[in-house]
Design a protein around this nucleic acid. Structure first.
Lengths: 144, 144
DNA sequence: TCAATAGATTAGAACGGTTCTAATGAAGGA
DNA sequence: TCCTTCATTAGAACCGTTCTAATCTATTGA
């Protein structure tokens, strides 16, 4: 019963989130948002999310997964992380933060912004302004 | 005459560079190395370098350009920079340094390592060790 | 409640950068 | 020089992503 309530709250929360972002709460977007916006943060690829949806018996096309990820990113519900050529990760944590990237396993891990500090930068090239600073700490399996 | 000498020096320098790296100085590798290792640093894509070679009447296949870029990267003559999904840049500057990336134009610009400072990091995930820290300052054309 | 319509979803084709294949060619040692 | 090993090649294959244009659905206003 408290479960039912929390489920309901989640659903309406998701719908509110979409509406606030200016996105129609369609069946597919609601379902994908529910998969994405769970308590703990995630780093997913389009393929990941599509598989996950299919596994959860949510019928959604890969094209819609891509559309949705991009729309969510544009509305600041997600953040795109580029660490490898030829594959994009989407991060449900949109706070200012950085990443560990394991080059052997392909796994990403957040580094909270208060655990890393980047000094004042040189000024941006003429006619440009800074949009974001990404720090990627590339790690590999220890030899030992 | 001094030009002839410097050209000769460049050629033998390139050959020495390849041999030192443990790579056979083949016609194609020599030609590509000459295009890459000019005095000022460059950020090239495979496509860029291939076009440049063809323009310079150097007959080399795209496959060889890819092979060569990867071999050079592996031998620390180049460094791969990942800033966009679906396209790799190769940087002739292998010193410790970072980048400005203009998201509107796709252009990369070096930030010397003495112009930016990253604080002590949190420790790497268990069983891993840090290989490299990449700072990418993403800029966009100023609204003005 | 019911159109009308603007926007979303879809399957599958197309795309673009990269990698693979297997056949030919070149470098270097004996 | 011959032989072996490694490099190069054209073109096909690959794979993540985007596009297309047909169908469907959420929303709005009557």
């Amino acid at each position: 019963m408290s479960e039912k309530f929390s489920q309901k709250r989640t659903l309406s929360g998701v719908i509110a989130k979409l509406k606030t972002a200016g996105l129609r709460p369609t069946r597919q977007r609601i379902a994908l948002a529910k998969l994405l916006f769970e308590p703990n943060d995630r780093h997913v690829t389009a393929e990941d999310l599509h598989k996950k949806a299919i596994t959860a018996s949510i019928s959604v096309s890969l094209a819609t997964v891509y559309n949705t990820l991009h729309q969510f990113t544009q509305k600041d519900l997600l953040r795109e992380v580029v660490v490898e050529p030829g594959r994009s990760y989407f991060d449900t944590n949109t706070d200012d933060h950085h990443h560990f990237f394991n080059e052997n396993t392909g796994s990403l891990e957040d580094i909270p912004s208060d655990q890393i500090f980047v000094s004042a930068l040189p000024s941006a090239p003429l006619g440009t302004k800074v949009r974001r600073v990404d720090v990627i700490v590339r790690v590999e399996e220890a030899a030992d």
